Simulated assay, not measured.
Amino acid sequence: MDIPISCSPVFASFDALLMASAQRGPEGDLQPALPAYDFYPAVTEPASGVSVAAIWTGAIEARASHAFVGGSRNELRQFALCAVLLRHPAGDLLLDAGIGERWQAHARQLLWLQRRSMVVHAGVPAAQQLARSGYDRARLRAILPTHAHWDHISGSEDFAGVPVLMNETERRFIASGHRSTRVARMLAPRPLCIYAFNGPPYMGFEASHDVWGDGCVVLVPAAGHTPGSIIAFVTLSDGQRLAFIGDIVWQMEGLERDVPKPWLSRLLADYAPTELRRLVHRLAALHRACPDIRFIPAHDARALRSLPALDASPPPPLHSEAQRPG
């Protein structure tokens, strides 16, 4: 089955981690917890050959206090920089791309405060790891970013000719000239394949996009961190259900405790912090109501270690050689 797309040559970027004060922000007008989740659309017969593999391209060394309100300044965390290979009989997708060969040039586009507070343990870019593993690049149909920040799309530059799959809202965000689109403008032009949320409500979200039409990879709009951020709900062949939530929260404590990022992290990283706070509250309710769904924040190394890893990509240790962007 083909991905229903229209193509044009543009793309996107921005952010990372920074030192921040761990203050609790105002709760504001939070939406109430959603009702019982008896509407999770079951995949009656999950397709065979649907699997995932984490590809570790590096990690950022930061403290828990930078990621969620109430986090300890004394606890050092790995903030993963990963791509995830989504294998499907109709063709594979790369969910996010991690950092690529030119990651230092990309990171230099960040704000000074972000660069000075960021310690990066760079690994092997995803494209190189896939090549070393013997992966057939012809199977890769598209790169699917959860959103267009630099640490999610840097590695896409290494996949020449592979389309980027994106919704129109995120494309407009890129084209708007927002400060967070600098890396996007550095990347070589490539086919940008636009999808629409023209499917029915899904898991409490007002619309959806079923990539292959079989319920195995379903995208929903999740605006807040960026205007066109998404959640990718994935059902594997063995029935496991995963929710890749991008940077809605940076660590699982955000959902487990129903707390936002600290105020300075919100200020520098989140496009619409108030809208995102409401979304975190909704997802926290969903997490409690659906324990069978494994939520995977894009930078939570512990959550990503729960996934199979590509053979060539063991998680980088915190004591590996670290670098600061210039």
Rank of each mutant, 00 (worst) to 15 (best):
A105E: 15
L255T: 07
A322Q: 08
Y37S: 14
F39N: 14
E101T: 07
Y40D: 14
A36D: 10
D311I: 00
Q128G: 02
R171E: 10
R171W: 10
Y135T: 03
G224Q: 05
A138P: 01
L264Q: 13
F79K: 00
Q31H: 04
L144R: 02
F68D: 04
V211G: 01
E275V: 06
L242W: 09
A53C: 09
A122M: 10
E168V: 04
H147C: 11
R115C: 11
G100Y: 01
C193W: 11
G204V: 05
R77T: 09
G25E: 01
A64H: 12
M1H: 13
A285K: 02
Q104A: 15
Q128T: 08
A284M: 04
R190V: 02
V259R: 15
R108I: 01
S51P: 07
C290M: 15
G49R: 00
G224S: 06
C290H: 06
L113W: 10
L187K: 09
I143P: 00
L165G: 08
I293V: 15
A59K: 02
L279K: 13
V217P: 00
F244W: 06
M186R: 06
A107K: 00
G155A: 06
D15K: 09
V162C: 15
G28W: 04
D151N: 14
P35G: 10
P316M: 09
K261H: 12
L307W: 08
G49L: 01
G215H: 02
S8V: 11
P9S: 13
L219N: 04
A284G: 15
A126H: 04
S208Q: 10
R171A: 15
A301E: 10
A36H: 00
R87D: 06
M19Y: 03
T181R: 03
P125F: 06
L81Y: 02
L144K: 01
H299N: 06
G49A: 00
A322Y: 01
V69F: 11
P262C: 11
P9I: 09
A59T: 13
S265M: 12
W56S: 04
R172Y: 09
M118I: 00
A107W: 11
P145M: 12
G98M: 05
G246I: 08
S313W: 08
I296W: 12
V259K: 13
S117Q: 07
L34S: 08
H149C: 13
A223T: 07
Q23T: 07
S21R: 14
Q78H: 15
L30C: 11
G98R: 04
R137P: 04
Q128A: 13
R241F: 06
G123Q: 10
A127L: 01
W56D: 05
R190M: 04
T226G: 07
P201A: 15
T274R: 15
S48F: 00
R116N: 07
R24I: 03
S180Y: 07
A138I: 00
F173K: 02
A142G: 02
F68T: 11
P4V: 03
S21T: 11
S13D: 09
A127N: 03
F173T: 06
D2A: 13
A284H: 13
E253R: 03
P189E: 07
R141L: 15
N167E: 05
